[in-house]
Design a protein around this nucleic acid. Structure first.
Length: 305
DNA sequence: GGGTAGACTTGCGATC
DNA sequence: CGTGCGCAAGTCTACC
């Protein structure tokens, strides 16, 4: 499920049930879901059993839950979750039947909500959970959305802040973009430059800003960049408000429900359909081993300099 | 360094 | 109807 709005829907759904909860049991059904965990399956289970969850945080498409270990004092580590292409975090009542594609289950006890199960299910196993040490952020700002502490898991340290993060350094971002000769879509998908944008929202933001996806980043004017940043934030905000984009059963919130943003798409997946601005057909081209969708009429390449 | 291709994996749907 | 193929919301690594 994948991009920022979908992951944020999951984060905000998990937070009320997980913050202040204690992990009572850990069940790993499929060790492939721990490929990013630096230790063994046993280490994962034992380190998490009895742990007390402190927060549920997100930067870009990465989620993490700082925890204090059983009998421990401060949160030095976090459970890191990445949903990959098809991961789900589901909240269930304690003892609920095993889900299709269930990989890992955390049984938790919450002071107000009682006994619950947090299920990590993932059809394609590109997603994963891991335990990871928390490192100080380089800018001393909170690590991400939902984080009070200025820390991020080691695996997230190289991921840039996302467009909805108040600590995003827009000056740095503009400088980076101005230096890159790569196609702007490639740069939007580079999570070390700005995070949280994937194939759907890259296409949507570029459509909104009327920018051809293969425009070299350094060919964009300051006006273009301003418009693009505004479109990125607008499309992410709107998708978040609509509960994310669901094409199939893969993306759902913690209760298994789909989002509505698929109805608001202007470019992504609309190959051959009339552009909502000019009526000409939306084009699809292969790009970076995936698809780009855009309007060849309203998203023109700028004149070469 | 930028870029590309490939690896990981399951399931769906249009095509033959 | 059966089969194989292309394609899918992501990230990381190896190699030019």
């Amino acid at each position: 499920m994948p991009e920022l709005p979908e992951v944020e829907v999951v984060r905000s759904g998990l937070a009320p049930a997980l913050v202040d909860a204690t992990v009572s049991a850990v069940t790993v059904h499929d060790a492939r879901a721990l490929t990013r965990h630096p230790g063994s399956v046993d280490d994962f289970e034992q380190s998490l059993r009895g742990a007390h969850v402190v927060a549920v945080c997100r930067r870009g498409k990465f989620l993490w839950m700082p925890f204090t270990p059983a009998g421990g004092s401060n949160a030095a580590r976090a459970v890191v979750a990445h949903l990959g292409m098809s991961g789900q975090m589901l909240l269930r009542f304690s003892g609920a039947p095993v889900e299709r594609h269930e990989r890992i289950r955390l049984d938790i006890d919450h002071p107000h909500h009682g006994a619950l199960a947090v299920v990590f299910a993932d059809q394609r196993t590109f997603g994963s959970l891991a335990l990871d040490p928390l490192l100080p952020t380089t800018d001393a700002a909170p690590g991400g959305f939902g984080a009070d502490e200025a820390t991020v898991p080691a695996q997230v340290a190289h991921i840039a802040r996302d467009p909805l993060d108040p600590a995003l350094d827009e000056t740095r971002l503009r400088r980076l973009w101005a230096r890159k000769r790569s196609a702007i879509k490639r740069v939007l998908l580079d999570q070390t430059v700005i995070s949280g944008i994937g194939n759907i929202y890259a296409d949507e933001a570029l459509w909104g800003a009327r920018i051809h996806p293969e425009t070299p980043a350094d060919a964009l004017s300051a006006r273009h960049v301003t418009r693009l940043l505004a479109e990125i934030r607008a499309v992410l905000d709107k998708a978040l408000a609509e509960g994310g984009t669901s094409f199939d059963a893969q993306y759902v919130n913690v209760n298994g429900q789909a989002g509505y943003f698929a109805h608001s798409l202007h470019a992504y997946g609309r190959t051959g359909a009339p552009c909502h601005r000019c009526g000409r057909p939306i084009a699809r081209v292969s790009f970076m081993n995936r698809s780009s969708h855009f309007c060849p009429s309203c998203q023109r390449m700028p004149r070469t300099r």
